[in-house]
Amino acid sequence: MPDEVFLVGDSFVIAIAQAAKATGLGYQGGPVSAGRFLEEPFYRIEQDRFEITLEGSGPIRPLFHDLLRSSAPVISTVGFNSHRLAAQFTALYRTQGVAHYSEMMSGDVFAACVLDARAVALEFYRMLADAGRKVFFTCSPQRVPLPELEVLREAETILIDAVSATGAVFLDARPGTANAQGLLPEFALPEDTIHANAGWGQIVLDLWAARQTD
């Protein structure tokens, strides 16, 4: 089993990094940015060097230079800031006076909306696959208002399928860490309505470890 992973993604990666640190698992990388900045192009490839291009990211750029060169398996949350999508769709529902996307568009159009909104993330996963990297990904453990949870899950399902199609392996931490209301309180940071704690991060690493024998 590898003794190191390469972490990349939004702020939810922090919980995984903390879990890795606590258990002595080595890691490279870390969180790149808030998820919304990963919705637009955020990197370029120079030869085989991965270069973050986000404004203000200068100090952390070297941490990701080896993303394509490293042999450590990648664990990513890129693209799974689904709470933003859920909030955007819920706002649209309100303005249109509907309760579900199916009152406004077909399932295919909804799927296209989701994939378009995460086009940069999908390109990122395709790029990693083309570089021959072994990639695992997980959903950021969103805690959203209940009315947003349904569309969040629907969007996640579409995105999970699309990312899986690039060859990346999904680590589904939701069973056991979430219920119909979202992330269980014991896996959430205290005094933070959004983010998960290292306990959740450990679940992700356990799922990853279990896949090493596949």
Binding site: D10, S11, I14, A17, G30, P31, S33, A34, G35, R36, P59, I60, N81, H83, R84, A87, Q88, A91, D192, I194, H195
Partner: peptide, 17 residues
């Protein structure tokens, strides 16, 4: 509309590093 909710993420990332 969802951008505001992510301000906390920026701060967390800064703290992490």
């Amino acid at each position: 509309s969802a951008a505001d909710g992510e301000l906390v993420c920026d701060e967390m990332i800064l703290d992490f590093y």
